[in-house]
Structure formats: structure tokens, C-alpha cells
Amino acid sequence: MVSLLRRYPVMIAAHYRARHPARTPEAKKNQELLEDALAEQQNENRRNLELLLKEPGRFTEHDLGFVFKLSYPEVEWLFQVLNDIRVGSWIQLGEPDPDKAPPAQATEENVQLAWALEMAGLFEHVLLEAINAPAE
């Protein structure tokens, strides 16, 4: 988890501009403002992530590994961090569609990106199960 989170941020804010370019000057300005806001959000998230990973007591050792303690608002925030890593890695891999295209060439960099993509998805799944589980 820590190795994965240290990759943040991966997503490039302006990525989707090419696919859905703004048609008017007003829309272009709005798009740029949104991209600036997202970039600022990534900077803030990165600062918070560094603090969180250094905080004593976040990870406690157990028989089978470590327990990572998070509050509900922190889980919500972590979703954004994890999916930035997942989607950003997928974009860097060339946006492969498993139904349409062969997988990317197995270079060392691509293997790292594919690992990050899959691990981020796994942790998202685990967190979704945790917050949707009935209270004990």
C-alpha cells in the first residue's frame, strides 16, 4: 500500500482535453480553471499523504501483516488518491481496452504501471467492501 501511494499523483489534469476539446472561448476558460483546480488538489493531496504515512499508529502489525487505520472521511479521500493512480497508470499504458486491444508491451515501466493499476483497483474494492459492510 505504501509503495503504491508513493506513486501519487499519476493523473495528468489536462489529459481529457484532447478527447473533448472546448468549443467556445468561455468553455475553454472553464476547462483551464478546472484543470488548475485539479492540479492544486493533487498538490494538497500529496502533502496530506506524506503527513498521513508518517503519522505514528496508522499501521499496526498483526499476525498476517499490517492494519491500516482510517476514518470514514479519510477513506473517501483515499478513493480519490487511489483512482488517480489507477486511471493515471492506465493512461500512461496507452489506455488499453482488454476487449479490443492486446496488452501493452512488457517493458519494466509498463509492468510497474500495470502493477499500480491492478493494486489500486484491489484496494478500491477492499475499501468499498469495508464501507458497505453492515456495522458490527
Binding site: 489507477r86 486511471v87 493499476l117 468499498l128
Partner: peptide, 12 residues
């Protein structure tokens, strides 16, 4: 897109 998990999108 083919990358976002369906349960994740619903949650968002």
C-alpha cells in the same frame, strides 16, 4: 472508460 470499477462509479 474501461478502467473505472462499476461499484466505484456507483459510489462516486
Amino acid at each position: 472508460d474501461p478502467v473505472n470499477l462499476m461499484d466505484y462509479v456507483t459510489h462516486v
